[in-house]
Design a binder for these strands. Structure first.
Length: 428
RNA sequence: GGAGAGGUGGCAGAGCGGCCGAAUGCGCCUGACUCGAAAUCAGGUAUACGGUAAUCCCGUAUCGUGGGUUCAAAUCCCACCCUCUCCGCCA
């Protein structure tokens, strides 16, 4: 959520910055609501003040044993007027709030203005794509031999689910363990185990609701508020500080969690139907930091480097992209995507997305710390995947495949694999 | 699933429908005393929104959440949420 003050102060300027990311703010509508809000709010509060002082007088008069009918008569119609005013104000607030909640974040000044993902800027490339002297197989063909089984998954659950067996399942687990351990030990994050089902309030906090309900799975409950399956651990991790004032000396908060993520992928029907690139359920190791505003851009760089460290350790070639204004997610002020090389697709594919949300999320959830002057200030939230486990598995299979169909397991994962150095097709 | 207890400021803990944004204690901040500290004393110490650009001032709202009764609700009524204890069930 944007700061409503900034909209009041410089509506045209804000609208212009929003336009750069493709969002057209209805300035007239906002102004109309604001003018009315101000009128209604002052009116309501005046009536409330009147009621309060009259009620006080009645109390005092009664205590002295005086007659109160005169005062009572004076405020005869006040109750109804007040109810009407309060109702109108509330309705207007709801409208204004809905408008505000639907506005995306402002792009940071360092973000290039662009019209599509083609305008994203490549920041760096690390590692060289291998040159293969044999026909490259994609992860679906390779994985089949090691226990990757989409047919069984679809029998059990439907399309866009996967099932892993044996060493492949173990490798998947090894990846998550390795990532977690790296972030805990080398990068000083605190490991957190979180709920995978969250309430609507949490979803609002990080920005998934109210606008992106269609992308989420939810679980109805009889006579109870429905719960949502998390699309990323960002949701529970960031909401840890919702409605809290964190003591300054505890900052920065650095959380890491390994969770499954659930996405309905509505609107992606035809895309990435083959393989485990785009699934309804996938595992991810997520990094979240809550920091003082002055630190958040340095934090974004650091956190992105933490994600990169995983790719480097796994010897996967990747590039780092700075998203342009048009490609930014709803809540992000600035985003780096890490894209891993997938030889079978002959292209780089997103494997991590690292963003600074500034105060966009924390304002929604009232997550604060106590600043220098002792006043509560909004934290900044920064997060990123470190990494998406399923896609990392895909990248390992494809990048580390051998002519004989085996896949070399990166050195750093071997301790998690009981010393196994390669996946080999079953010899039958 | 059954039975019971309870949700009040950073914490503990009071609170006859009006003088309650809320006693008291602890904690914290400032000052006095002190060479310094402790102890003691004095004062201060919630958040959001609005008037408004303002850390001052004024107003409004907030005692788990939402509704109701009333001129007036932390206090009375209803519903819901959450926590705790015991029993049952359960990974």
């Amino acid at each position: 959520m944007l700061d409503i003050q900034s909209l009041r102060r410089d509506l045209a300027g804000v609208a212009e910055r929003l336009a750069s990311r493709g969002f057209m703010l209805d300035k007239a509508e906002f102004s109309r609501l604001e003018i009315e809000r101000k009128l209604l709010q002052t009116h309501t509060q005046t009536l409330q003040a009147q009621r309060n002082s009259s009620s006080k007088q009645i109390g005092a008069a009664k205590a002295r044993g005086e007659d109160v009918s005169a005062i009572m008569a004076e405020i005869a119609g006040l109750g109804d007027a007040l109810t009407a005013a309060e109702t109108a104000l509330q309705a207007l607030q709801t409208e204004l709030d809905a408008l505000l909640m639907g506005i995306p974040n402002l792009p940071h000044e360092s973000v290039a203005v662009g019209l599509s993902e083609d305008d994203n800027r490549e920041i760096s490339r690390v590692g060289l794509p291998r040159v293969f002297d044999f026909p490259v197989r994609d992860h679906v063909d390779l994985g089949e031999k090691f226990g990757l089984d989409f047919e069984t998954a679809s029998k059990i659950a439907g399309a866009r689910f996967s099932l892993l067996r044996g060493d492949l399942a173990r490798l998947h687990r090894a990846l998550a363990q390795f990532m977690l351990d790296t972030h805990i030990v080398n990068h000083a994050y605190t490991e957190v185990y979180v709920p995978y089902l969250v309430n609507a309030e949490s979803m609002r906090g990080t920005g998934q609701l109210p606008k992106f309900e269609d992308d989420l799975f939810h679980v109805p409950r009889k006579d109870m508020e429905k719960l949502y399956l998390i699309p990323t651990a960002e949701v529970p991790l960031t909401n840890i500080v919702r409605e809290q004032i964190v003591p300054r000396e505890q900052l920065p908060l650095k959380f890491v969690a390994h969770t499954p993520c659930f996405r309905s992928e509505a609107g992606a029907y035809g895309r990435d139907t083959r393989g485990m690139i785009r699934q309804h359920q996938f595992d991810k190791v997520e990094l979240v930091q809550l920091v003082e505003p002055k630190d958040s851009y340095a934090t974004l760089e650091a956190l992105t480097a933490h994600a990169e460290a995983i790719l480097q350790a796994l010897q996967l070639p990747y590039r780092k992209m700075a998203l342009c204004t048009r490609d930014l997610g709803f809540s992000a002020a600035k985003t780096y995507d890490l894209e891993v090389w997938l030889p079978a697709q002959n292209t780089y594919r997103e494997i991590s997305s690292c963003s600074n949300f500034e105060a966009f999320q924390t304002r929604r959830m009232l997550a604060r710390f106590r600043g220098e002057n002792g006043k509560p200030e909004l934290l900044h939230s920064v997060n990123g995947s470190g990494l998406a486990v399923g896609r990392t598995l895909v990248a390992i299979l494809e990048n580390h495949q051998q002519a004989d169909g085996s896949v070399v397991i990166p050195e750093v994962l071997r301790p998690y694999m009981g010393g196994l150095s390669a996946l080999r097709p079953a010899t039958d």
